[in-house]
Write a protein that binds this DNA or RNA. Structure first.
Length: 846
DNA sequence: CACACATATCTTTTT
DNA sequence: GATATGTGTG
């Protein structure tokens, strides 16, 4: 980078901090710029407080993005900085794109796109490309995705003589990912953690992995951050350059940042960090020390007060926007703590709360707010709204028999809405796990209802796309062994394991890429004659394509590669049903390359921007997971699957304990707050998991909703006529929710509801409880996490009227005998389905 | 070396 | 139930 050459902000040349700050305040006093119109006082303050650290706690639907974009607009139009002097980081590409668009709209087309607005990852790549050699890479390095990562690790694990069955590469990849999220190198990971894999080989494998990456001239996702941090720490001059450049830093979704991202931000935002970096402390060590010391001020002993730059250094103009209640990526290394600690990290930080919600009805807000108060350790916000619509609907909770009914009923409701003129685009079904999606897809296909899956399987993860990309990768980066191995024998060239192993060994022993090894080996007698010829041809092809890269249009070249390699032909000859689709995808791939400058630019785009926009023009119901729904909003939201074990997910409980539960609760909060007008929560009594029916009980989160804002409704009615064995009618209707005292009257007081609640307080005992070695300790009392009492809302569980040994019939499981009774929960030995625990209201005497 | 079949494993969330 | 492996045969 060229320092701050042309980057002096127009009006602040020679200005001190105070003068710039004054300039920032000025517009508020004089004529109000039109971009400030319509902002509430808190939003306005968040926009105008440009100097110094600022934390904006923005609850769901409080205009967070608007504040961010207006703030940038303000900085630009007041000429506090050039676009190139603003660093704005987001978590997702979508968020970055949206911000760009909105700024462009506000500022007008005069301002060229902001070069430093992007995701953490893409900005890190941009920085790393410029200084690659300083961290031992070449500028054309490739970015490996999880798939490549796992394949590489598998090789290493096997080479170490470790049983890759017992110690799957996938698991190690997750571990390494976790370490990198914490910015820990192989030498910095805790001894205990290092032992956690393959009897202590974890650390060594991690080390080898990093070495291999360097040889391959590659980075994985975590490396982008970690290497960037290393770059800054080891090269204070480089950091100083960026430091001078970025006058304003903005961070979106701050609650989702992990330790590495946090460190990265601190390096870029705090002048003292630059000096600390000069002392070359290992990355993780310092943080740990700081956490242990409980301080996040300037590192002691490093900053000499006499240094001149402490006076002239730019202020920490960092603005982080986030919502601790929407932190749902803890499992991926996000540290809620980052946001909880902000005012300690950044001295004299201003904290602004945005609590006025512009999105949802008061019922929805109250329901969500009440639910989230069950969490501890919040910064505390209460959403409110001025909107007071007497017609607004309460949050609806509906019960269903099984997941088929759930999908059917929701489908019918959507059709009804559609008939009333409701746009499908404004409807979303948000679920906890993606396997829930299938049932809805099936249903919608038969109904002929348009739907779109948001964030589902990605275009770039399809096999044919990855194959094609592997070809392109080898052409642009001959050292990319992973890509090479992927396609040496695709299409089939008669090169089997033995040949590939020979090549790999040769390459490894000479410490050269495999493609180079091939070049050498075709001149020797090492390989069979047939293999030698094919490889010779292949190597020649790659050399030829590589030669063309600079003077052929990249789309032509890409097509040429796929044709001449025989890859296209392979699918043309394929008679399977998917083949035509795959060929289409390949065409689409080439087509999507057009907007890029060259093959290299395209490859980078693909590795970083893995999301594909499915067309928003089509009116369709949105299906997605709760995670990918964050940041979106819809008029009507369906939240199916609120059952213990699924939501909260058993695994979150097992692995995360109380904090795991709280994260699940935040997910629920995110889900509810996506809704503008209608929010429909569902739970069912039977769900199919792994093709097996499992009994389930309502989620504790349903208990945690405030009665006043919730309406409990029947399923759409037709219980009869379906189910196992085509049982006609509904033998359970009366015992379940058709009680004499329907919930609708007095809240949650019907017998069925009470039973459901009572059940919600112990293990489901079936579906998710007892798999994969973890013990489901049923103790007859409320469900606990690590000995803590979690669910307290047991409301008068009624004793079951069934007796031991009684023969009963269950709609899904058939006939069986009662072998255990616990309140209203029965353990039944079914003749066909085996032992299950079910609610008594679902069985009939026989 | 390729193909077909069998087996095992697994399913939370993803930049 | 589906996919990704591994095994055995041609």
């Amino acid at each position: 980078m060229n320092g701050n050459d042309t980057n002096q902000p127009p009006s602040s040349v020679g200005m001190g901090i105070a003068a710039r700050a004054a300039a920032a305040r000025a517009p508020a006093q004089s004529a109000t710029p039109n971009y400030l119109e319509g902002l509430n006082p808190e939003q306005r303050e968040a926009v105008l407080t440009t100097e110094g650290p600022l934390l904006v706690l923005a609850g769901a639907g409080t205009g967070k993005t608007r504040v961010l974009t207006t703030r940038i607009t303000h900085i630009l139009s007041e000429k506090l900085a050039w676009p190139s002097q603003i660093l704005a980081v987001t978590f997702t590409n979508k968020a970055a794109r949206e911000m760009k668009n909105r700024i462009a709209l506000m500022v007008g087309e005069t301002v060229e796109g902001m070069p430093w607005l992007g995701t953490f990852h893409s900005i890190c790549v941009k920085i790393l490309r410029r200084h690659a050699e300083l961290v031992g890479l070449k500028s054309g390095f490739t970015i490996l995705d999880t798939d490549d990562q796992v394949r590489l690790l598998k090789q290493l694990i096997q080479a170490e003589g470790v049983d890759d069955k017992r110690w799957p590469a996938r698991q190690l990849a997750n571990l390494i990912d976790g370490w990198k999220n914490k910015a820990l190198g192989p030498n910095e990971i805790a001894e205990g953690e290092a032992r956690a894999f393959a009897n202590g080989k974890g650390r060594e494998l991690y080390r080898q992995y990093q070495e291999r990456l360097k040889v391959l001239n590659a980075c994985d996702f975590g490396d982008l951050l970690v290497e960037c941090i290393r770059l800054f720490r080891e090269n204070p001059d480089v950091l100083a350059d960026y430091h001078a450049r970025f006058r304003y830093i903005l961070v979106d979704e701050y609650q989702d940042t992990n330790v590495a991202q946090y460190l990265w931000l601190r390096l870029l935002s705090q002048p003292s960090e630059a000096r600390a970096a000069a002392h070359g402390k290992p990355i993780g060590q310092q943080l740990r020390a700081e956490i242990a010391a409980g301080l996040h001020e300037e590192p002691k002993g490093n900053s000499q007060s006499g240094e001149p730059d402490s006076a002239s250094a730019p202020p920490t103009n960092i603005c982080c926007v986030g919502d601790d209640d929407q932190s749902i990526y803890g499992w991926r290394g996000a540290e809620v703590d980052n946001i909880l600690r902000f005012d300690k990290d950044f001295k004299d930080a201003t904290v602004i709360r945005l609590e006025r919600n512009y999105r949802s009805t008061s019922h929805i807000l109250s329901a969500a707010s009440h639910l989230i108060t069950h969490n501890e350790g919040r910064l505390g916000k209460t959403l409110f709204t001025d909107i007071d619509d007497p017609d607004e609907e309460k949050v609806r909770v509906a019960a269903g028999w099984d997941s088929e009914e759930e999908a059917r009923a929701i489908g019918e409701e959507i059709e009804a809405l559609q008939r009333k003129g409701h746009a499908l685009n404004d409807i979303a079904i948000l679920m906890r796990a993606s396997f829930q999606m299938r049932e809805f897809e099936d249903r919608f296909v038969t109904l002929g209802l348009n739907y779109r899956v948001v964030g589902g399987p990605r275009f770039y993860e399809r096999m044919e796309i990855r194959d094609a990309m592997a070809y392109f990768r080898v052409v642009t980066q001959p050292a990319d062994d992973l890509a090479f191995e992927r396609i040496v024998n695709t299409p089939k060239r008669g090169l089997g394991d033995t040949t590939i192993k020979k090549i790999r060994d040769h390459a490894r022993s000479r410490n050269i890429p495999m493609l180079a090894a091939v070049h050498e080996m075709v001149e020797t007698e090492e390989l069979g004659a047939k293999q030698r010829t094919t490889l010779k041809l292949l190597a020649l092809n790659f050399a030829r394509w590589a030669d063309l890269i600079d003077n052929t249009s990249h789309t032509d070249l890409a097509e040429m590669i796929l044709d001449e390699s025989g890859y296209t032909e392979m699918w043309q000859n394929d008679r399977s049903a998917e083949a035509p689709g795959r060929l289409d995808n390949l065409k689409e791939l080439i087509r999507s390359m057009e907007e890029f400058e060259g093959l290299r630019g395209f490859l980078e785009h693909v590795s970083l921007v893995m999301d594909t926009d499915n067309n928003p023009d089509l009116d369709a119901v949105n299906l997605m997971t709760l995670h990918s729904a964050k940041g979106l909003e819809f008029d009507t939201v369906f939240l199916p699957g609120w059952e213990e074990g699924l939501f909260p997910h058993q695994r979150s409980l097992d692995e995360g304990g109380r904090s795991g539960l709280e994260e699940e609760r935040r997910l629920a909060y995110v889900g509810i707050t996506r809704a503008r007008k209608n929010c429909h929560i569902w739970f069912v009594s039977n769900r199919r998991i792994h093709g097996q029916w499992q009994a389930s009980i309502p989620s504790r989160f349903i208990d945690e909703l405030p009665h006043a804002n919730v309406e409990v409704v029947e399923a759409t009615g037709n219980y009869g006529g379906y189910g196992v064995g085509g049982v006609g009618g509904n033998p359970y209707g009366s015992s379940r929710f058709h009680t004499s005292d329907p919930f609708t009257r007095s809240g949650y007081s019907s017998p069925g509801w009470k039973r459901a609640q009572a059940n919600a307080t112990d293990e489901t005992g079936s579906a998710w409880g007892n798999r994969s070695g973890h013990k489901t300790t049923y103790n007859g009392g409320p469900r606990t996490i690590e000995g803590e009492l979690v669910a307290k809302s047991v409301i008068g569980a009624e004793e079951s009227s069934f007796g031991m040994g009684e023969r009963v019939f269950h709609m899904k499981f058939g006939y069986g005998a009662i072998i255990g009774i616990d309140g209203n929960k029965l353990t039944i030995n079914f003749e066909k389905a085996g032992e299950k625990r079910v609610l008594d209201s679902f069985v009939e005497r026989h």
